[in-house]
Nucleic acid binder design. Structure first.
Lengths: 143, 143
DNA sequence: CTCATTTTGAAATTGAATTTCACTTTAACC
DNA sequence: GGTTAAAGTGAAATTCAATTTCAAAATGAG
């Protein structure tokens, strides 16, 4: 699926008349092969050891491009940093966030999807998307 | 219920050895009688006409106190500002957010509450609280 | 290879939240 | 009612992440 995302991004770049650069390829590779839910800062620091010439701003702009191209999604959990996660075509999931260690895991649940439509209908809303986040203690942080 | 919240806040103030001030009373009154989901900035601007001497910082600090006392809750929708909403004892609700006009309305749904426990259990999480947000077009913004 | 266009990275700017600090107010005590 | 220690206030300064600016560098179409 990483191959698919790379293709999607390269097609996006081409279609927009943008240029393919060394930095973008490096950042894309790192983004796809690392932990999901990274902040700009985290990805920047992660890259820095192997690629000290890549600047924070380039990481920032490239992540924005990933989001625009559809292979990534911006996310805010309450910690003040914007995080980016991989997006697979047509797939939706929600999040469990540990309030102690900050670990983020994912789940998807058909009932949640069904309920959102019901609720939306009863309020006259047309839903575009939803977020559901469960905050609590992950198994490692209990005790 | 506003009477109840005022009492809760005054008890909180007393218990903490804090002082009751004119500004806090004004801000509390305004907070409880205005629209829910206000940002610091919005409440500050709202107050300014009638009370030009109350500063932004005091509104900021007082809202924090409201949250600490349990009568308000901090919230982030994706617009970059922290918002505060009234909290009623033991009550939980979730949000519908219009992506066009920014209107925020509330709903509560028993099935959502039930599902969260199920999901948490299957992931070994102990849930503290959850957020569910439905983003879309409110009835006024459709068409 | 040339050249217009895009990209890059450092530095500057923005915008909101938060802290600092000198001055003012509150309330407990006499 | 006056005194005084503690808390509160507001303007200004600071922080912190996100975003913009700009001059220099890289890309790729012809």
């Amino acid at each position: 699926m990483n191959r698919v995302k790379k293709k999607i991004f390269h097609d996006f770049i081409a279609e927009k008349g943008l240029k393919s650069t060394r930095q973008r390829d490096i950042i894309l590779e790192a983004f796809l092969s690392t932990n999901r839910h990274l902040s700009i800062e985290e990805l920047y620091l992660h890259l820095r050891s192997a690629h000290p010439t890549i600047g924070y701003v380039t990481v920032y702009r490239t992540l924005k491009l990933f989001a625009e191209s559809g292979i990534a999604r911006e996310f805010q959990f309450g910690d003040g940093q914007t995080r980016y996660e991989h997006v697979a075509e047509g797939e939706h999931h929600d999040h469990l966030v540990c309030v102690l260690c900050g670990a983020i895991s994912e789940f998807s649940n058909a009932a949640v999807e069904a309920i959102q439509d019901e609720i939306a209908a009863s309020h006259g809303f047309v839903i575009r998307y939803h977020k559901m986040e469960l905050y609590g203690l992950c198994s490692a942080c209990q005790g």
